[in-house]
Amino acid sequence: MTHRTIKPAPNIVQGTPLDAKALKRGKIFLNSYAPALRYTWDTGEAMGRYLAELKNGRLIARSCRKCERVMIPPRMFCERCFRPTDDWVYVKATGTVNTFSLCYVSWDVRRLKQPEIPAVIEIDGASPGMGILHLVRKVAPKDVRIGMRVAAVWKPPAQRTGSITDIAYWMPINRRSQRTVSAK
């Protein structure tokens, strides 16, 4: 048997990088397409109730009697026990910042002067570690902390549409005060 040496990397690397200059020279032909696609998602049972309760200014979870978890966002089946969940459980519109970021880039890659503060917020009344994604405001970016207590600030009822954005944002609360706050 002869030993055949497989050629090392430098000999097999190909590809033609383009840069702004090459494109400007106009020698490269391009074609563009902007898709006009629209999607409408049906909510299903659990999400439908969740959104309806958001419109009412309340957070609701689902519990599984087998693993004894209170889950938010709510779901009709428990992914661990692989059985139907059992009960609707109202949980509080207060919670604890599990983690956060100060984000200076929008979803479509525009720069932001004032950062958005996305956070995972562990919800009071749900099982430990059960968080939802939302935004924190009304706090100086340098003052946000993991472990910070926050409360939901709801849009006025007339402006609610049955959406996660019916909670306008979350803001810090005094450790002793557990009451929720309404947006003006």
Partner: peptide, 8 residues
């Protein structure tokens, strides 16, 4: 439902 409206 729970994330896209927040424009993540």
């Amino acid at each position: 439902f729970t994330e896209q409206p927040l424009k993540p």
